Amino acid sequence: MARKKAETTAGGAEANTGSDLTVDTSASTNGVAVPADAIPLTFEPIQINNYNLTDLKNTLDDALKRCLARPDCYSQIHMHTDVRLGLGWAAVLVAAATGLYSWKISFQESRLGVFIGVTLYALLSTIQMGYIYFVEGNTVFVGKRKTLDKRIQTERLTASSKTSRPKPQSPAPSSAPTLPLSTFYPRATSTYLPPHYHLTINYALTASSGKALIRANKVEDERCYADFFDSKGNLDEARFVAWVSAMLEKVEDEGKSQ
């Protein structure tokens, strides 16, 4: 079966989405409305340095946010970003105020104020780093949406990611190809496997403004970065979205079956 294609223009170039997520709406006639989830997905071409692991992960993290924050999906919660920005701006204001104070007042008279300002700046910076490391961690996306099933319920989704380095002697991930790895990943050997993008999605359904937990579930999976980037560093975002959508459907369906 031929793959369905969606066209996206970028300087007159055509991009193949490479995914069955897109559909042809030209068959809709007589003014029949097309469902929101049937609207073709189009993606802007993205090219990066595929030898930089940080760029690879950040690019997939951005694509993950775009996938999960679609209008028909979840509303993103920016709590972690707001906390980091708040602590960062507070530290900057303290540093600016301390510098201005030491410039206006003589050294002998400003020593105590400068000491307090430096201490407060260091404290705020430490709290910010601690929050990023211990609270936010690998979290990429936090979102929620409300549903009505006899009562108002809230679905909350948390997605986190990291770069993993699977060992050849360990059990192969669920997405490992059946053919020799060298067929797909030229750098793969019997003692080396390329880095993988490890994605974890947590799902929770609650009621009574989050006080009553109805059900919860978690799914994990990982794919090699080469599954989503070609040799030139072009991202196949449609393929990535198809993978994320399959995990999302799984975590929601298994959560509802509990």
Rank of each mutant, 00 (worst) to 15 (best):
E136P: 04
E136T: 11
G137E: 04
G137W: 05
G137C: 06
N138E: 08
N138M: 06
T139D: 08
V140Q: 03
V140K: 02
F141N: 01
F141G: 03
F141T: 02
F141K: 02
F141E: 00
V142K: 09
V142C: 13
V142I: 13
V142M: 13
G143W: 00
G143D: 00
K144H: 09
K146Y: 03
K146A: 04
K146D: 01
K146F: 02
T147K: 05
T147N: 05
T147C: 05
L148N: 11
L148H: 07
L148T: 13
L148V: 07
D149Y: 07
D149H: 07
D149N: 04
K150T: 15
K150V: 14
K150F: 09
I152G: 00
Q153L: 09
T154D: 01
T154K: 01
T154L: 00
E155R: 02
E155M: 02
R156D: 12
R156N: 10
R156V: 15
R156M: 13
R156S: 11
R156Q: 06
L157K: 08
L157M: 15
T158G: 10
T158M: 10
A159F: 10
A159G: 06
S160K: 08
S160V: 10
S160F: 04
S160L: 07
S161P: 12
S161Y: 12
S161R: 14
S161N: 11
K162E: 13
K162W: 09
T163Y: 12
T163E: 09
T163R: 14
T163P: 06
S164M: 09
